[in-house]
């Protein structure tokens, strides 16, 4: 089962040019499922980097614009897209010139996986 999910995630990773990593973590940044390219920077997959999102999404939900769904961070060489699917967090790491809209459209394709993973996270 987990192998099938991993395979599916790997296929999605190959679908978008210059997408380096898809990472599904829990609130604490603990990886649950990941598909990684060799070129992905190690730093972007560390829990202390990933947990920052949980805090940022909580804070940005207080801006009076409703609940925060997605945060896109553009850096000089990379872009990091994180989606609020609490208790899970969806993380994408890509090069700065990667098609952001295409990455965002992967959300619908990953959604079916999240249902089962959410159950596992809540149980534990």
């Amino acid at each position: 089962m987990a192998e099938d999910m991993k395979k599916y995630l790997k296929q999605l990773l190959l679908r978008v040019d210059n997408l380096l990593c898809i990472l599904i973590t829990d609130r604490d940044g603990v990886p649950i499922l990941k598909a990684v390219n060799d070129k992905c920077p190690e730093l972007a997959m560390r829990p202390n980097f990933l947990t920052t999102f949980a805090m940022a999404t909580d804070q940005s939900s207080k801006l009076g614009q409703g609940r925060n769904k997605t945060i896109i961070c553009m850096y000089s060489s990379y872009q990091v897209i994180q989606m609020n699917k609490l208790p899970l967090i969806l993380n994408f790491v890509a090069t700065a010139d990667c098609n952001t809209g295409h990455i965002l459209s992967l959300e619908n394709l990953i959604e079916p996986l999240l249902g089962e993973l959410k159950g596992a996270v809540i149980e534990s």
Binding site: N99, H102, N108
Partner: peptide, 25 residues
């Protein structure tokens, strides 16, 4: 250029902007 939607009118989806840019590229 980043595949982000600038505008949409009629029977078209905002979420298609990324795929459209990817196809063109």
């Amino acid at each position: 250029q980043q595949g982000l939607c600038l505008g949409v009118k009629g029977k078209a989806s905002i979420s298609s902007s990324g795929v459209i840019t990817a196809i063109a590229d």
